[in-house]
């Protein structure tokens, strides 16, 4: 086990010594510093609104920041939770879920290609190391480094929200494992491409393309699920004019088959980064509006995808000749 811990530590150290790490840490610090003056005031309700609590007002450095946000809350506690959900949805999801993950991929994508370059891999494989374990150790090393950054950012947000908004919600910290998992899925793709091509830029490019494809498939699925029931209505003979008879059912059949044989299988197989934020929301949702089944299903299918990609990576590293 010791050699593999050395490999994990070395990957971490390699990433920690890169200039990008310091840029990332400075960016996170600046973001937290920019967020720190933002306060949250709960505005009292009135008889007309029907709520005891009317809404919340964001303040930045003592001044009002935007209009009062109306939320259907009946108590200050409920409003705080809704505010937190809003914060998670708009700040954490967007900042961490997009820019943070993108930056993490760029920083860590070089770990695998650097390991498998000529002069490095032959030396490593001359040591008493198991090939798949070498691949996994390097993967874990990259994740450990990103975990450190996510911890810094989320803990920072937790402190800002606690100190400035009075919302000491430990459940914010659930974002740490969720976003680490999110990163692991995309990093597994980067690692596999890096292993096959030994090119950092290519692995970053393919990973971003893959990420975009996952979002596109998930969005297409959501859009089609909204539109296809409308087509059912249009298919009703009473809704079709005599001139256009027959055209709409054909179009509906086409989109139905695109959905059934294209979008749905792809959606089932691919990881679901868009839906993973629901997991965070689930843990914040005290009323249980989000069903646990809908939360765990993307986690499980994304987890299976992660295991399959890592399995392919282990197999490739085991079979490859260097």
């Amino acid at each position: 086990m010791k050699p593999y811990l050395a490999l994990i530590g070395d990957s971490f150290q390699a990433a920690a010594n890169s200039r990008i790490l310091w840029i990332a840490l400075i960016m996170i610090t600046l973001f937290l510093a920019a967020l720190a003056p933002m306060g949250l005031d709960i505005v009292s309700g009135d008889a007309e609104s029907g709520y005891a609590i009317d809404g919340l007002q964001l303040r930045y450095a003592g001044s009002d920041f935007g209009p009062t946000i109306q939320l259907p809350a009946e108590s200050a506690t409920e409003l705080r939770v809704l505010a937190l959900a809003w914060f998670m949805d708009h700040v954490i999801d967007f900042i961490v879920g997009f820019f943070g993950i993108l930056l993490a991929i760029i920083v860590s994508a070089g770990v695998i290609p650097e390991t498998y370059r000529s002069g490095s891999v032959d030396l490593l494989l001359s040591k008493p190391l198991n090939r798949p374990a070498l691949f996994l150790a390097k993967f874990i090393g990259g994740c450990a480094f990103v975990l450190m950054n996510i911890c810094y950012l989320i803990t920072g947000l937790f402190l800002v929200v606690g100190l400035r908004w009075g919302l000491w919600e430990g459940r914010i910290l659930i974002a740490i494992p969720v976003f680490l998992f999110y990163f692991m899925i995309l990093f597994s793709v980067a690692a596999l491409i890096g292993l096959l091509s030994r090119r950092t830029v290519l692995s970053i490019f393919v990973t971003i393309l893959f990420w975009g494809s996952c979002i596109l498939v998930a969005s297409s699925k959501q859009t089609m699920e909204r539109l296809l029931p409308l087509a059912d209505v249009l298919e009703d003979p009473r809704m079709i004019s005599p001139e256009g008879e027959g055209e709409v059912p054909q179009a509906e059949a086409f989109w139905q088959s695109v959905y059934t044989f294209g979008i749905l299988p792809l959606y089932t197989v691919l990881p679901k980064p868009l839906e993973l934020d629901e997991t965070v929301q689930y843990f914040l949702d005290r009323k249980g509006k989000i069903k646990s089944r809908s939360v765990w299903s993307p986690v499980i299918s994304s987890g299976i995808f992660l295991l399959v990609v890592l399995g392919i990576g282990c197999w490739v590293s085991w079979r490859a000749e260097y």
């Binding site: 070395d10 920690a16 010594n17 370059r117 002069g119 032959d122 030396l123 001359s126």
Partner: peptide, 11 residues
């Protein structure tokens, strides 16, 4: 083993 073109990580 000493490879011909030894690459040592720059850190």
């Amino acid at each position: 083993y000493l490879p011909e073109n030894l690459f040592t990580a720059t850190h």
